[in-house]
Design a protein around this nucleic acid. Structure first.
Lengths: 150, 150
DNA sequence: AGCTAATTAACAATCATTGTTATAATATAA
DNA sequence: TTATATTATAACAATGATTGTTAATTAGCT
């Protein structure tokens, strides 16, 4: 995602208005590595500016995605997560216990893409996404009991 | 997934009853490589035995998953898909145009898992899932216009 | 300051999936 | 082969995430 002031420029240039809601959402996403859900972003925005509607959050997030400023990721936890890291190619580690998502940089070109194209038949590859499931550091330390705090 | 007669045995052994609905669902899944949705399975079962409820289909599919007979996959198309291929390690090709899913066998042990564990920090890896997005053979032939027939 | 288009909030609506419960059907034993 | 216990089914309603609708508000320009 671009810097907030760049986002403001982009919004102005595309005839969009800079509202307190949008600024607060930009702020929550800025340098965020937590892969928050819309609900989580909503809560943080609310604590910043008092009132927003969840609809506005969804709208702005979809907007940011279509402007290629964030990535909407669905790792099968039932809720979309929003990732401002779009400049750097990366993949995701998903904790099977707490559902937290972390970025992981993997070079999947060379060797691996060769293997892919050998087996992909007539399929034209656009993008390769790797999801690694397991237990994160925190949950490893705590045994295997269900817990879900951030 | 085991053969239908094996499934029947497993069901009997676990105090489950063999109903026409369940048999029809087994039948639809048997050797199925289409990664159908619950809705699609429901339609096929209905054409076989006349009446089922969608709830029954979901129930049986969840049951089959907990018996390790099928795999529930979520490739971010908004709906779960059901894959009877569980014996053979594989990954998925997802068409960005028609959402069809195909299996692809990839050996991601050796080289690749080494790279993974180098970068995964304290994360304990359980499973690696690769989703390859792009255009399938059919959609490649038809240009890029939206279409969704099977 | 005033105008206009864009934005927001407060709903209702949707889609996939699961919960509830009364009825029906299977398996088993007499 | 029929009675009985138990499981399964169907027909709902309910849920959770996300999107549609619309009237009221606000940002940005003049």
């Amino acid at each position: 995602m671009n810097s907030i002031s760049n986002l403001v420029d982009i919004y102005r240039l595309t005839n969009r208005k800079i509202t307190p809601q949008r600024l607060a959402i930009f702020n929550v996403l800025d340098s965020n590595t937590d892969h928050p859900t819309a609900e989580e972003i909503y809560e943080q925005v609310k604590s910043q500016i008092g009132n927003v509607s969840l609809k506005t959050v969804y709208q702005t997030l979809n907007e940011l995605e279509s402007l290629n400023q964030i990535q909407i990721i669905d790792v099968g936890t039932g809720t979309s997560r929003y990732d401002p890291n779009v400049n750097q190619l990366h993949h995701h580690l998903v904790c099977q216990n707490c559902s937290k998502v972390k970025d992981i940089e993997l070079d999947i070109s060379g060797e691996m893409l060769k293997a892919f194209s050998q087996n992909s038949g007539e399929f034209k590859i656009d993008r390769v996404e790797v999801v690694i499931r397991g237990l994160c550091e925190v949950c490893l330390g705590k045994g295997s009991s269900k817990q879900s705090e951030l």
